[in-house]
Amino acid sequence: MSETEIGFEPPYLHPDYKSTILRAPRAALLRLPEEWFHRAPGPAFGRVTVSGGDADLTRQHRGEPLGERIVVTGRVLDSDGRPLPHTLVEVWQANAAGRYVDPGDDHSAPLDANFTGAGRCLTDAEGRYSFVSIKPGAYPWGNHANAWRPARIHFSLFGAELGSRLVTQMYFPGDPLLPFDPILQSIPDQRGRDLLVAAFDWETTKPNWALGYRWDIALRGRNSTPWEA
């Protein structure tokens, strides 16, 4: 990581987010030379199967889920700003009421029989991904008194190199909870936090059907596959 990027990444220990206190390593992480460690090929994710319907989270059940229908799209880029085609993007989220399907979620908000909240896709030749979903609700958690997490979609991406692997969360613009979220606020620099907030986008918005959000993702490392302009 270059010095200019330091403020854009969260630290391991961020006491405001209580779960980091016993899970953050104490010893300094061992730094290996970037050119052969971070740039070594990343995991081959081909065993994770992706089918066309996996990118539409509103059509995985008999009926349509309740909530505000959304399209979330953007490009996955490498650190030089070049598109990353054919990389795996996995997403998961709470339903419109803020409840996760996960059996560990004890939030009292209702489940939606027509919504699981998990999807996958591969980026296309221009590095583009696109998901159809519903806008997730805010989510209460036990980190501190009256703690609420902002609406968000979890993203997992692979990329080309060991250093490219990214798990993160996409937030929605104008969410009043953003300044109070210790997980987002763990990123020291406001410009880094801003990179996790999608933009409302008229071009993606579909008349009489869904609001559109645009969110580009830049992975560390360089696209190792041939790319033609």
Binding site: E5, D80, Q169, A218, L219
Partner: peptide
Amino acid sequence: MARTAPTPSQT
């Protein structure tokens, strides 16, 4: 080509 700031990580 200009470097693009990598998207930060979250849990």
